[in-house]
Each structure stands twice: as structure tokens, then as C-alpha cells.
Write a protein that binds this DNA or RNA. Structure first.
Length: 803
RNA sequence: GCUGAUGUGGUGGAAUGGCAGACACAGGGGACUUAAAAUCCCCCGGCCCUAAACCGUGCGGGUUCGAGUCCCGCCAUCAGCACCA
């Protein structure tokens, strides 16, 4: 054996070969069955590739390579989610243009990804900042606008004082900016909104038909937050004002002992003249308005509130007069912004009632003393103290009372969602301009579709402003335009779209990335969509994954695309942590640089370690030693070439091991059990070393199985051994189900469930053959003449004797 | 508080209710070598000189011929949501 294993040379050689052969490009013909595998396209940050990227990429690369060998027409694309704040901030700091920074970063990322040997179809690259791309992002926005699903509204938004930008609800984590961690404040602004709530039910229902890992479905369901209940009108005594509440427990209507409205509720103003303690109410309202959402929820554990003195509401079921409070534990943004409080059966109302000494009336029996604790279980319990509802179960009472309210016109069944509309404006430069102009006469007018894209103006200074105005607003030449409708003077919208815009439809563009007539050709979409398998991070579950499903549903509704759901299958990878078990970060000094690792052990070993380090869906700390172990294994595979025999077939002595390996690897790749698939190949190589030689047929099988994980070394060895056409043209190996077990197998012998010995038995015995094994000398000795009461024989596993 | 996940050697982790610790990392020993590195082989949960036996999958119960796995009750850690009426 002369040639040494030099990954750097081999890997570059094959990367060049693949590029020239165009072997990983999707075929334009639609004859073969298709497979569309997708990873989340990266944000090309200045830091370059992180070791987390290759974890997702390698996993999907393995699947893509296997699918090609299985005869599928595979689409495995890559692109750049390139609008966004870090690039803009970097550009501001260094007085350069974000477009230039973006291009530089993309070039760096592309080089890094190519160096790892992913089988991406590079001919279909997309870039969200490319006008040819965002022309269609703007087009989609206009369709949303035309259907009334994009609207501008004055409203309190989550404002990040550091990013100087409004945020979507989904971007606020524990009251802080998801990106920079600064505490978010409330600020009233006029914002573009997307009516994702119009799709709440469809987004929920669609989850039933797709193959997403369960925790993703659960998180999306929780975020959408559907609840069923009723709206009920409460009259205000001696007035024609009605307070409408939303409740999920209309059955407890007889137990309502007071009401609460949110501080922002309009009824407070309407009742002003009758409120005796108006000053106190106003003071409370002002204090609440100043608090951020964070303070209103997280910090304030103790409930606060002020009674509206002089005001009484009337419970419609029993005509009882009850007090009305204003309190910030009731949110203006959910339901009707007003509630009926049933302290006996709601923990929040209970706390409030205790503090303000309000009566607690039990209306559902079955719990403990409601004076000591609220009883909230809806599955058990019977209605009491509730007039015509007495004796009913909670479920029955809900239906009865809802019908009763509906008949009298004082209430009705109602479904509510926690999901809020999507705040879509950003007051920053580096994003897609919103393609609308505001005309004094005509109001908001869309830019005609044939004038898209609306390009970003070249500016010298695009720093964000403290006033909350977009930096674009200072560009008067750009802002001042003419109205497409009346030709009069008009102003362009100066807010831009959020980063989530471009990523909400990129998977559609991959089907037909160079189309300038439509976002993608309908027939191409019909062939390629939906995405068959999408792997990505859990952090996008309530952001990108929800937004893009929304856009896809919408585009389907307007007939632009053929499929309803964007993704058939969604899986998720675990995070890679630093060697100390903490999240990788510069400040912790535990960041692993992929370039350095590849320089040391090669891309093949790097890829293998990323897959071998642990269960794919779990967070795993990085181990440099472990990574070196994978390099050692590849060296061991390389040296198999010194042990090759002339035999083309799989030899009898290696038959079981080879078939078992192919089966294990094939099945484990599909289940994303990459670590055990690799372990199976390691075991196989250990076994071959034990035999001392490997036949050509056996080596072929090993190289085919290993190729998706470590494609370069396997192609090189394949070529060196003269196995013919490159592996990317080969078929995925099949195993022989009849050759998975040896003629004779060792099984455990248990006495009353404890292992007492092992015996060799012929393969192929059935459960009924257990009886015969009692004749075995070893078994006889173990039983020692005791009376055998029961025999359990599990073929290939064990014999358990109860005596 | 709610929802979900996890808990196994020194470490990362394996294990359709069927021989716990596969495969690796670290560690130890041996072979080869003048030597080192590399490589190859062996050992590697605890108790024990060794072996047998015994004990061992967060804790306490249970079901079963047999439980890391299933059921009941706890504890701990992580993640997401969080006054959603």
C-alpha cells in the first residue's frame, strides 16, 4: 500500500469532479419520482459558518444522496436569507454598503459549504436580497394587500430601543428582543400588519395531515391557542351600556361575582360620568399604560385593580348586581377585553377575589373547599347553585347555557385564538421596500405589478432613527413620487419588510428559480411541491415555520400555487454545545471553528463526527477528541485496501455481518439515527479486521453504505479499487433478509428471569421448540432436577425456565 | 403555573418488554520499534487478589416468567409558553 490517506487532496479532487459532472443538479424531466429535501437556508453572517449549520446540512445531504441512489429525481437546493440587521449594523459601523457586505459574506459561506462537499444543486441558488427575487416577495405582499390581508394600523407595538425597530410578537422572548436581548417597550405606531389570524383555523387543521415531529405540532398548536367558549352580554345597571365578555366556562355563569375590564377598555370612558372614583381609575390606567408587557406579566405577581364605584353589572342568568373592576390582569388584546370573574373556578379570579374580599360562590361541586382553592377541573364535577343547570355535568351545562343565551340574544358560541396578527413593518434600511405609495387623494395605492421590484435607494446614511422613522424617510428623492392612480403627488412607504418575508416562500422559488414571469412555474411547482422533508431548528417553530405555512396557504387560495401545505415532513436537529456543555458563544470562548476542524481531520471525518456525536435531535457538547476518533476510523477504512482479496462475491464468513450492516444503515438513515448507523459500520469494520481480509464485494457494500456520510473518501477508494462508474451513479445496496442470522446462534438461559448461562442453538427454532432445549446438557445442569413449571423461549434471544 | 422532553459507566451515548452499557472518547496493559509516533491485539459499572455470588439505568411503589423500557406517585434538569378568561 503506497498511497496515504490525504483528505485535503482527495476532497478537493472530488468536489471539482462533482461540480464538472453537474451530478447533483435536479433533472428537468418530470418522469422519475421526485424527492425534495430542504434545509433552512443560512443567514450569511460575517462570522462565517458555524458548526451547527453542517449538522442539519449533513443529515439532509445523507438523505439526498441515498435518494439519488434509490432512483429519485432529487431537489436539494441552497440559498441565502440575506436581508437583516447584523449585516446592516456592520455596514453602518464600517461605513460600507450592506449589499457589498452581503455579497462578501455569501461568497465566504458558499466556499465553506462547498469545502464540506454537500450535494446541493448550486444551479438553483436563491438570494433574498436579489431584486429578481424580492420582486416576487413584493408581489406576494401586494396580493395580500389586495385581499385585505395586509393593513396599516395604529397600534401599540413591541419596540426594541437598541435595534430601533418594531418587532413581531413572535420575536419577543420573555419581554426581550429575540435578537439582542434588550428589554422591549410598548410604543404606539402605525404599522403594516398581516392578517395571519384569518388562517388560524387552517394553520391548526393542516397539522393533522402532515408528518411533523410531535413537539413541533404541539408548539404550533399552543401558539395558535384555539379555545371554544361563549360571548355573553352583561347589562350595566341604569344605563344602555352593555359589557360583552368572552368565557370558556359559560357553565359557571351563576358563579360570577364581579367583572373585570382591561385598562384600555372603551366602556370605561363611556361610563365616565357615572364613575365616582374617576381620578383613581385614571391613575391606575396611566400606570398600566406606562408598564411594558414584560412588567405587566412577569414582574407583577400580585394582582392589582380598581373598582369602578357607582357602576354595577347585571348577571343575565340571575339578575344579580355585581361590581365591575378595571385590572391589568385582563388583556385588551384577547377576547373582548372584559371578563366575568368566577373566583370559585378560576385561579386568577380566585386570587383577585381573596385580595379584594369578593364573594366566592361554588357552582361546580366535586372539588375541595372553594374558599381555600379554586376548583378548575372540567372533566369531573356537577353543577350546583345554578338554577336550571343544577345536576348537569360541565360539558352538558356548557351546551345548555350556550343555547339558552343564544335563544335570548344575549350571547353566542365563540371560538378564540391566542394567535395575533403579524407586525410586518420594520423601520430599517436593509429589507424589502413595501411596494405601496400614499396619495393625498387616493390613500394607499399599490405600485403597479409591472413596476416591481421597488428597489432600495442608494443612500449615504441609513442609520436607524430614535424617532421610529425608517431611515428611508430621509431620502426625499425616493420618497416623493407620483400616484399610480391619479398621477398626483404621493409618498412611498418607507418601512421595510421583516427578515421573515424572504424566507416565507423561498422553498417555492427553488422549484423554478430563474422565472421572471411568475414566482415559479405552476407545473414545476406541481411536480416538486410539497417539500418532502424539511429539517431545521426548533427556534423557528413559531416564527418561520408558521409564517411560511401561512403564505403557502394564502398563495394556494389565490391560485398561484397548487399545494396547500408547504412541508410534508419536518424534523429537527439538536444544538451543538461547546465542550463545556454550554451554548457556544464568543463571550464563553467555546466556539469551534469548522474551517480549523476540517483542516485538521478533513471534511469527511468532520461530517461523520457531526452525525456520530450523539442522537440527532438532542443537544450535544462538542468533543475534539471524539472528532479525531472519526478520522481514525476513516484511516482504518482506508487501510482495508491492504486487505482486499480477489473475490468479487460476499464470502460466506462475512455474509451475515454484511447483510446486517446494510439493513441497519439503510433503516437508521431513514430514522435519522445516524449515530447508530455509523456505529454499525464501525462494528462491521472491526469484524472484517478480525477476519483479516475483505473481499471486493464486501468492500463495495461498505463504501456504498458509507458514501452518504463521507462521500469523498468512498469515491476515491471506489476508483482506486476499479469498481467502475462513480458511486453517485450507483444503486443503493439491498440486503438479503434470509442472510441476516448465522446458522447457529448463542442465546441466554435464564432461571426465573436471571441469566445463568449461555448455549448455542440452531437458527430457525420457533417458540414451540423451547421444550426440546430442556434436553441440552447445560440447561439440565442449570435446572438441577427441579420441577419445571413454565418455559419461555424467545428465538434468537433467550430461554427462561420457571422452576 | 401550564406544555413537552430528558435522567443509564470517568465522558458522548446504545438497547421492537427479552443477555444493560453496542459504538466511540478518555484511561490502563501488551505486541511491533534502538526509541517515539502511528498501527494491531486485550482490559475497562460497583463489590473482589481472582472467581462465583451479589448490587447496579434519578427516588418510592406496582404489573410481568422477565422492566432502562409499561402503570401509579415523587424528585431533578432542560426547552417552550406564560394572567389567553
Amino acid at each position: 500500500m503506497s498511497k496515504v490517506y490525504d483528505p485535503d487532496i482527495i476532497e478537493r479532487k472530488w468536489q471539482k469532479n462533482w461540480e464538472e459532472a453537474h451530478c447533483f443538479e435536479a433533472e428537468s424531466s418530470h418522469e422519475k419520482p421526485k424527492f425534495y429535501g430542504l434545509i433552512e437556508f443560512p443567514y450569511p453572517s460575517g462570522q462565517g459558518l458555524h458548526v451547527g449549520h453542517p449538522r442539519s446540512n449533513t443529515a439532509m445531504d445523507i438523505i439526498a444522496r441515498k435518494r439519488r441512489m434509490e432512483g429519485y429525481n432529487v431537489l436539494f437546493p441552497i440559498g441565502w436569507d440575506a436581508f437583516g440587521l447584523p449585516t446592516e449594523n456592520y455596514a453602518i459601523k464600517n461605513h460600507v454598503h450592506p449589499a457589498g457586505v452581503t455579497e462578501k459574506n455569501i461568497n465566504h459561506f458558499r466556499e465553506q459549504l462547498k469545502r464540506i462537499g454537500f450535494s446541493f444543486d448550486w444551479s438553483r441558488e436563491v438570494n433574498t436580497t436579489d431584486p429578481k427575487y424580492f420582486r416576487w416577495t413584493q408581489w406576494i405582499f401586494l396580493q395580500l394587500y389586495k385581499k385585505g390581508l395586509a393593513y396599516k394600523m395604529e397600534m401599540p407595538v413591541n419596540w426594541c430601543p437598541s435595534c430601533k425597530c418594531g418587532l413581531a410578537n413572535e420575536e419577543v422572548v420573555a419581554g426581550k428582543c429575540e435578537r439582542c436581548g434588550t428589554e422591549v417597550v410598548r410604543r404606539v405606531k402605525s404599522q403594516w400588519m398581516l392578517k395571519i389570524t384569518a388562517y388560524a383555523q387552517q394553520l391548526l387543521d393542516g397539522l393533522d395531515d402532515v408528518d411533523f415531529i410531535e413537539k413541533v405540532k404541539v408548539q404550533q398548536r399552543n401558539w395558535i391557542g384555539r379555545s371554544e367558549g361563549a360571548e355573553v352580554d352583561f347589562a350595566i345597571k341604569d344605563s344602555d351600556v352593555k359589557l360583552r365578555v368572552y368565557t370558556t366556562r359559560p357553565d359557571t355563569l351563576f358563579g360570577a361575582t364581579y367583572m373585570v375590564v382591561a385598562p384600555e377598555h372603551a366602556a370605561v370612558d363611556r361610563l365616565r360620568d357615572r364613575i365616582e372614583n374617576w381620578d383613581e381609575v385614571v391613575a391606575y390606567r396611566d400606570a398600566a399604560a406606562k408598564k411594558s408587557d414584560f412588567e405587566r406579566t412577569e414582574l407583577v405577581k400580585e394582582k392589582t385593580g380598581v373598582e369602578l364605584r357607582g357602576i354595577k353589572a347585571i348577571d343575565p342568568v340571575n339578575e344579580k348586581e355585581i361590581p365591575v373592576f378595571v385590572a391589568d390582569y385582563v388583556l385588551s388584546t384577547y377576547g373582548t377585553g372584559a371578563i366575568m370573574a368566577v373566583p370559585a373556578h378560576d385561579t386568577r379570579d380566585w386570587e383577585f377575589a381573596k385580595k379584594f374580599n369578593l364573594p366566592i360562590i361554588e357552582v361546580v361541586a366535586g372539588g375541595e373547599d372553594v374558599q381555600k382553592e379554586a376548583f378548575t377541573d372540567v372533566a369531573t364535577g356537577t353543577l350546583v347553585n345554578s338554577g336550571f343547570l343544577n345536576g348537569l355535568s360541565v360539558q352538558e351545562a356548557k351546551k345548555t347555557i350556550t343555547d339558552w343565551l343564544t335563544e335570548r340574544g344575549i350571547g353566542e358560541k365563540k371560538v378564540n385564538f391566542k394567535l395575533r396578527d403579524w407586525v410586518f413593518s420594520r423601520q430599517r434600511y436593509w429589507g424589502e421596500p413595501i411596494p405601496l405609495v400614499n396619495c393625498e387623494k387616493c390613500g394607499w395605492v399599490p405600485v403597479p405589478e409591472n413596476e416591481l421590484p421597488v428597489l432600495l435607494p442608494e443612500v449615504d446614511n441609513y442609520e436607524p432613527t430614535d424617532s421610529g422613522e425608517s431611515p428611508l424617510s430621509k431620502m426625499t428623492d425616493w420618497v416623493n413620487t407620483t400616484c399610480p392612480c391619479c398621477g398626483g403627488p404621493a409618498k412611498r412607504e418607507t418601512d421595510t419588510m421583516p427578515q421573515w418575508a424572504g424566507s416565507s416562500w423561498y422553498f417555492l422559488r427553488y422549484a423554478d428559480p430563474h422565472n421572471d414571469k411568475a414566482l415559479a412555474d405552476y407545473d414545476e411547482l406541481k411536480y416538486w411541491m410539497p417539500v418532502d422533508w424539511y429539517n431545521g431548528g426548533m427556534e423557528h417553530t413559531t416564527l418561520h415555520l408558521l409564517y411560511s405555512r401561512f403564505w403557502n396557504l394564502f398563495l394556494h387560495d389565490i391560485g398561484a400555487i397548487p399545494n396547500q401545505e408547504a412541508y410534508q415532513k419536518r424534523t429537527s436537529h439538536g444544538m451543538i454545545l461547546g465542550a463545556n456543555g454550554e451554548k457556544m458563544s464568543k463571550s464563553r470562548g467555546n466556539v469551534i471553528n469548522p474551517d480549523e476542524t476540517i483542516a485538521e481531520i478533513g471534511a469527511d471525518a468532520f461530517r461523520m463526527y457531526e452525525m456520530f456525536m450523539g442522537a440527532f435531535d438532542q443537544a450535544i457538547p462538542w468533543s475534539t477528541e471524539g472528532a479525531r476518533g472519526c478520522r481514525r476510523f476513516l484511516e482504518r477504512v482506508w487501510r482495508l485496501m491492504d486487505m482486499v482479496t480477489e473475490t468479487e462475491e460476499i464470502r460466506h464468513e462475512a455474509e451475515v455481518a454484511t447483510n446486517a450492516m446494510i439493513k441497519k444503515v439503510s433503516e437508521d438513515y431513514e430514522r435519522m439515527k445516524f449515530n447508530t448507523a455509523i456505529a454499525a459500520m464501525m462494528s462491521y469494520v472491526n469484524e472484517i479486521y478480525g477476519i483479516g481480509s475483505i473481499s471486493r464485494g464486501e468492500l463495495r457494500m461498505l463504501l456504498l453504505c458509507l458514501n452518504p456520510v463521507s462521500p469523498h473518501i468512498t469515491e476515491e477508494m471506489w476508483e482506486m479499487c476499479g469498481f467502475g462508474e462513480p458511486i453517485y451513479r450507483q444503486k443503493w445496496p439491498v440486503w438479503d433478509e434470509n442472510k441476516l442470522v448465522a446458522d447457529e446462534v448463542e442465546i441466554a438461559v435464564q432461571i426465573r428471569g436471571k441469566v445463568r448461562g449461555r448455549i448455542m442453538v440452531p437458527n430457525g427454532l420457533t417458540r414451540e421448540d423451547g421444550e426440546k432445549l430442556l434436553q441440552n446438557e447445560k440447561v439440565k445442569a442449570l435446572v438441577g432436577g427441579a420441577e419445571v413449571k413454565k418455559i419461555i423461549f424467545v428465538p434468537g434471544r433467550l430461554l427462561n425456565i420457571v422452576c
